[in-house]
């Protein structure tokens, strides 16, 4: 099973934008390995992964998940604030360019503290995805779509977007 770093999709504009949230919990072991000034924090690398999953679903949805969408490059990542247990992360991803070979996306990461309502900007991430069956080298990959597995479809179903995954 693939490790999901988003909890649910909250907004979707087909072919353009996808928003997902992640509730950060002390129940996650990984937090206990990342302690700054006595506070457990969400590792930046996993926030980039969360954005990659959000943007990856957005890119995949444009082909009804027929393409194998692989994160190929972190073009730019700037994360300026820590996120700790009890807070919520919001990933807001937009497609900048997409074609047969792949897609580029940009997005913002925000946080909301447990007792607050306002979102604060944590940073921005730009990513590049490859549609690997159309890679420049012509390398062949297995026919089945190993990227968008059953648990990704579960996230789509929870958000009422299951039809996006139908062939």
């Amino acid at each position: 099973m693939r490790w999901l770093w988003i909890d649910c999709i909250t907004e979707h504009e087909e072919g353009k934008r996808l928003v997902a949230i992640k509730n950060v919990s002390l129940a996650e072991d990984v937090l206990h390995d990342h302690v700054v000034q006595g506070k457990t924090i969400m590792p930046f690398s996993l926030m980039i992964e969360g954005m990659a999953q959000t943007a990856g679903i957005l890119v995949g949805s444009t082909s009804r998940f027929k393409e194998k969408v692989i994160l190929a490059k972190i073009s730019k990542a700037s994360l300026d604030f820590d996120v700790t247990a009890g807070e919520t992360i919001r990933y807001d991803a937009t497609i900048d360019r997409i074609d047969q070979a792949g897609a580029s996306t940009s997005g913002t990461i925000d946080r909301r503290c447990a007792s607050g309502e306002a979102w604060e900007r944590v940073g921005r991430v730009e990513l590049l995805f490859s549609h690997i069956d159309n890679n420049m080298a012509g390398t062949e990959f297995p026919a089945h779509n190993f990227v968008f597995s059953a648990n990704f479809k579960m996230v789509l179903e929870t958000a009422g977007l299951a039809s996006l995954a139908e062939n």
Binding site: R97, A101, L128
Partner: peptide, 26 residues
């Protein structure tokens, strides 16, 4: 590296406002 070529294609398209077909530049 090979994936950088795709990145460069997208950035040139955006910078100069034209489309580049697959295999046209590289």
């Amino acid at each position: 590296e090979s994936i950088d070529f795709l990145d460069i294609v997208f950035r040139i398209e955006k910078t100069f406002d034209f489309k580049i077909s697959q295999g046209e530049l590289f």
